[in-house]
Structures are given as structure tokens and as C-alpha cells.
């Protein structure tokens, strides 16, 4: 290869790389710009929104106070935190136990039960909506936290995910533990769980996200304003607050904030969870 040729190849490589960065940056801008607009609008005055000013003349943080006070947002947030944390605890408990049984214990009908579990994943949520609503009504659970948590504290997908992780733990560890006179429950708690912490965090995060962002189910099982979780509360606020766009955007920002904070702290686990779910799915 002559000097000129290699010089040319270098140039075209640089060009390609520059193009790559331009496309990626454009993509990132498109992904982010709605959030930028959201925050900018949340800081504008009503007049600035109406006259389509691009930047607010002064940052009106008071919009957040006003939005917060124009609906029981404190209550909505408290409800959502409570429901999400209970759901996470429930899912982790039921999934860890079931995954352990499916990967480490032997019992008649195990494969059949597991197949039935997996089959429930094929059922679309819409089929369950009406009968579950009737069940909840009959139990007198409308406007309770039970209705928002109990139906969702078991997740086949997470059982499946954890079973895969539990199965990777070498059997030697179990034999050693049994020699120590260690029962199954202690083995699960002291050996398996510490070794599969990343998987447990992934399950916890995904469950939290799903629960925090849920809309349809809590919408139909809550009537009282005081029982609404944040998504339901926000969706009512959006249709009831008329033309006060700046307040809607302030409320939207507050709603997004907890998951964004969580995301930035536990990004790695999120990505790992997504990747494994994608590949194993």
C-alpha cells in the first residue's frame, strides 16, 4: 500500500466516524428534546406558553408549588410508593420461593405445574380485566391497596428469570451445605440469595417500574381520589386542569422524577435485566 492510499483510507475512515457521531447525536437529541421542552415549559408563565416563547424570561419554580397544590399529589405519590414497594416485596418473595422449588426441589407434577405457569404468560391482560374487576368488586376491594397489589405479586416471567439464575449455582455448594446440616430454607437464604443478588435487583427494579407506571388496572379499581396512584391522579389532572400547560408539564416532571433518579443510580442493573430478558425471552 502506498503512502497516498493509506492517507486516503484514513480520511474516509475519519469521515465515516464523523457521520456515525452525527447520526447518534441527532438520535440522542430527538430522544431528549421532549424532556427539555417539558422542563422549559414547566418554568414558563401562562402568557409565555400562549405566545410560544422558546425560553422563559424567568424560571418560575412557583409552577411546581402551584401544580402540587392543585391536586392531592402528595397523596398520589404516597399511594404509588406504598403500592410499588409492597408489589416489589411480594414479587420477590413469591418468585424466589417458586424459582427455588423449580430449580432445586423435586416433587411430583413439577414439570406440569411449570408448564401451566408458563402458559399463563400467553394470556393477554385484556381477557383478565373484566373477571378480575368482578372478583375485586365481590371481595369489596375497590378503593383498597389490596386491589392494587395482590393480583400482581406473582410474576411468571420473574420466576422463570430467577430459575435460570438459580440453576447456574453449582451443586457442590448444596452438597457441602447439606453435610453441614443446613436445611433448604437456610440454604436458600444464606447461599443462593447472596449469590444471585444482581438478578434479584433486576427483578426488583423492573417490578417497581411496572408498578409505578401502571395505569389501566388502578384506573378501574379506584374511585376515591384519595386512593389514586400517581399515574391515575396525573391522567385526571391532565384532563381537568384545562389550558394550564405549564402546570401539566410541572406535574409530568414530578411524576417522571422518581424513576429517572432510580434509573441513574441503577443503570447497569437495568441494562443487564433488559439484555437477559431479551435474549432468554
Amino acid at each position: 500500500m502506498t503512502y497516498v492510499d493509506s492517507q486516503k483510507a484514513k480520511q474516509s475512515r475519519t469521515l465515516v466516524r464523523t457521520l456515525i457521531y452525527i447520526v447518534l447525536t441527532a438520535g440522542a437529541l430527538i430522544a431528549l428534546s421532549p424532556f427539555v421542552w417539558m422542563i422549559l415549559t414547566s418554568l414558563k408563565s401562562y402568557g409565555e406558553v400562549a405566545t410560544r416563547a422558546i425560553l422563559p424570561a424567568k424560571l418560575r419554580l412557583s409552577n411546581y408549588v402551584e401544580a402540587w397544590n392543585s391536586a392531592p399529589f402528595a397523596r398520589y405519590f404516597a399511594n404509588s410508593f406504598l403500592v410499588s414497594l409492597c408489589t416489589v416485596t411480594g414479587v420477590l418473595t413469591t418468585s424466589v420461593l417458586a424459582a427455588y422449588a423449580f430449580s432445586w426441589l423435586d416433587f411430583p407434577g413439577k414439570d406440569l405445574v411449570f408448564t401451566v405457569f408458563l402458559a399463563t404468560m400467553m394470556i393477554p391482560g385484556q381477557v383478565l380485566l373484566i373477571p378480575n374487576f368482578l372478583t375485586i368488586t365481590r371481595l369489596g376491594w375497590v378503593d383498597t391497596y389490596w386491589a392494587q397489589t395482590i393480583p400482581w405479586i406473582a410474576s411468571v416471567f420473574n420466576i422463570f428469570l430467577l430459575r435460570q439464575f438459580f440453576a447456574t449455582i453449582p451443586k457442590d455448594l448444596y452438597d457441602a451445605a447439606v453435610l453441614d446440616g443446613c436445611g433448604h430454607f437456610r440454604y436458600l437464604m444464606t447461599v443462593i440469595l447472596p449469590l444471585t443478588k444482581p438478578a434479584l435487583i433486576t427483578v426488583g427494579l423492573n417490578t417497581f417500574l411496572g408498578s409505578w407506571n401502571a395505569l389501566q388496572w388502578p384506573l378501574i379499581v379506584t374511585r376515591k381520589e384519595s386512593m389514586r396512584p400517581i399515574q391515575v391522579g396525573l391522567s385526571y389532572f391532565l384532563t381537568e386542569s384545562g389550558t394550564d400547560t405549564q402546570l401539566m408539564m410541572a406535574a409530568a416532571t414530578m411524576t417522571i422524577l422518581p424513576t429517572v433518579i432510580l434509573y441513574f443510580f441503577a443503570q447497569k442493573q437495568f441494562m443487564e435485566g433488559i439484555s437477559t430478558s431479551g435474549l432468554k425471552g
Binding site: 413469591t94 420461593l97 417458586a98 422449588a101 423435586d106 405457569f117 399463563t120 405479586i153 406473582a154 411468571v156
Partner: peptide, 20 residues
């Protein structure tokens, strides 16, 4: 072990049966 197996899957199984 069988008893334990059924015991461990029962919470998930109950919820799945009742609501799914």
C-alpha cells in the same frame, strides 16, 4: 422434599390461579 416443593410454589400458584 415434595411437601417443601408444594409449599414453596403455593404463594405464586395461588395468586396465578386466582388472578391469571
Amino acid at each position: 422434599e415434595s411437601f417443601l416443593g408444594y409449599l414453596y410454589i403455593s404463594p405464586a400458584a395461588l395468586i396465578l390461579a386466582a388472578f391469571h
